[in-house]
Amino acid sequence: MKKLNLISLFILLATIIGCTKDITVDLPQAEQKIVVEGSMEQGQPPVILLSKSIGYFESTDLNTLQNLYIKNATVTLNDGTSTVTLDKICTSTLPDSTLQAIAPLVGIDYESLRNIDICIYTSFTMLGEIGKTYTLTVNADGKTVTSTAKIPALIRPNYYFWKPQPGFDDYGYLWFNLTDPPKLGDNYRIFVKRKGVDNSFVPVLGSVYNDDFSNDLTFDFYVARGHLPNDTTSADVEGTEFYFKRNDTLIIKFCTIDRGVYEFYRTFEQEVFNNGNPFASPTTIKTNIDGGLGVWACYGASYDTLIVSD
């Protein structure tokens, strides 16, 4: 065997052009469905918004958008013993000051709310009660959709705390210490509102949890700051988008939810997060609305305040 005397060579000639281009796709016509966006927590009235789904590539100018919201529905709510018919309040009939107040309730920002007429179905005669199961029935455009959700018993973290992330002095996640009850099957959804910064409660990043892995444990856990869609309220320092800042006052809404609501938000947030990521199998959002789309969410909410400091 002889020594090789001519190594040390190679030529690199790579032209790797990873490319993305716009294409048009032809999609079949889809059936229009009723979309329910409803919520209620203990001591509060139900808030229901009704709309319709739209073909994937159909344009959404303001006019189309107007027509998507359902204004002629009959909505009833049953708490197991009695049934009430919900009242309709349309935004076009409300003064600006009221609009500003209800914007956080319906999850649409004030500016948008001024542009379109949306009707909210609600009732001040039936407020949420812990432990009760509520059945919602919607009749509109000749269709009926129903849904059932429960306000579970309250569970409240032992305490909240904050600490800076390594590499930061003033930014970090929100931490809490929770004792999960012994029985399996607790589900949670967490919101945070930064006082003076956020107009409404913002679900944290990946806002729902269950106790599959943490049943009957006491543990520390953290949450990252969430963002509302088209969030323009605060210009974050780059790299701190998911942290809470020192000296912020945080109002924390820690909710118990039932499995149906958990499943909806888990798949909903997954879909929002994937946003059509081709590597994920298409997430069919698990709605708890029979015959329609969307969610009827009941919350057992506990409120706490934390001023961010070490």
Binding site: S51, S53, D109, P229, N230, F268
Partner: peptide, 17 residues
């Protein structure tokens, strides 16, 4: 692929075909 979309909690989400 998605065939329809709808508005919920301020997001636009898809209904698959």
């Amino acid at each position: 692929l998605p065939v329809a979309r709808y508005f919920l909690n301020g997001y636009v989400v898809n209904e698959y075909g």
